[in-house]
Design a protein around this nucleic acid. Structure first.
Lengths: 192, 192
DNA sequence: TGCGACGCTATAACACTGTTATGTTTTGTC
DNA sequence: GACAAAACATAACAGTGTTATAGCGTCGCA
């Protein structure tokens, strides 16, 4: 990678991690990188390209969180592990998470490359579900994966957007894990 | 309400409904309203106030969707009715929904008045749960309400941010309702 | 080796944004 | 009617992402 391109990406990542999208003006990025703004256009297709690189990284982080290295059977306990890792990523990498699930349509649309990375991350989740339901169609297991994702992401999103309004809710992580496990067990029972 | 204030609010609502937050520049609003931009500052505390009024309206719409006029027992069927109404509101009033759950922290923070409206909307949901679990503490029922909200909102949020990446998923509404009912029934069983 | 094309770069300019400043007009109260 | 406050039109400001312009360096080809 060209030196300037790397500098720009590192500068953008640093600013983004610390201050979210609002910290990402092209002037701030170029200043932090020690280059002029034009590099953002020649190397990254403008701010759109910067956001795309970060969006891709956000989904890569999700994929990493969802990847289990050890052999496993999908059980309620495994679901707990996966959900905890998902939640941990969502909190530690909040800016990335908010980029994926925020409303940036005015300034950013994911590229095809970004869409591929998102699909790849999702397929990790589907693979987990398929281990438990090997006789399901791919579509059926995708739907189950979406359901688990929905409840987990719902907890994260409410934490971002609703908890600040309602006041402190204790043991958020344990509650989210418990809810996801309850739901998972109900899904399993329903298909047995 | 002053004539200009009403004109501005109507103009903003129209632009917002049609084009989301990106359609809401102060110049576009004032042009649509037939006044100059200064009215947005004198009547609404700037764009912040416009967004606040719309955010409040967004939660009012949620509250309306969650309000049941008839006497009811909270059952799985009632959950289905509530979830369908929630989903319908989320789709028909997408801009409002995205304002509540989008990442606008750079340009908008909810006022205390807005927070009160949000809390009031949430309490409607808590009241439904309390009908089923009258012996729970308020905190316990709030947590159950959060859980139902999480899975429902999760489906909406994934529809907004993930479905465009994954391709068409059929019968989204029925799947969301089914998932919410499954989860609700599991919650009920767990507390019986 | 020289020339032209290409890519990268610094800088300025552009059109837009929300907000503030300035001066004028309107409204309300005494 | 006088005065103060509020509302208002307009211009200016500081910031945004992007494009335009000019210049430099490198590479490939004749």
């Amino acid at each position: 990678m060209a030196d300037a391109k790397l500098k720009i990406l590192e500068a953008a990542s640093k600013l983004f991690f610390e201050g979210g999208t609002q910290a990402l003006s092209v002037r701030a990025i170029s200043k932090q990188a020690g280059v002029s703004t034009i590099g953002i256009y020649s190397h990254f297709d403008g701010k759109q390209g910067i956001l795309d690189a970060l969006y891709i990284r956000g989904f890569e982080l999700v994929a990493e969180a969802m990847t289990l290295e050890e052999e496993y059977d999908l059980s309620s306990e495994t679901v707990a592990v996966l959900v905890r890792r998902y939640l941990k990523n969502a909190i530690e990498n909040e800016a990335y998470y908010k980029l994926i699930f925020g409303d940036h349509s005015a300034e950013y649309q994911p590229s095809n490359e970004a869409k591929d990375v998102a699909i790849s991350a999702f397929s990790i989740l589907v693979k987990h579900v398929t281990k438990l339901f090997p006789n399901n169609t791919d579509q059926q297991n995708r739907e189950i994966a979406i359901e688990i994702w929905s409840i987990t992401h719902g907890f994260v999103s409410l934490r971002h957007h609703v908890y600040p309004l309602l006041g402190d809710v204790n043991n958020w992580e344990d509650k989210a894990v418990d809810a996801a496990q309850t739901f998972f067990e109900a899904l399993v029972a329903k298909r047995s």
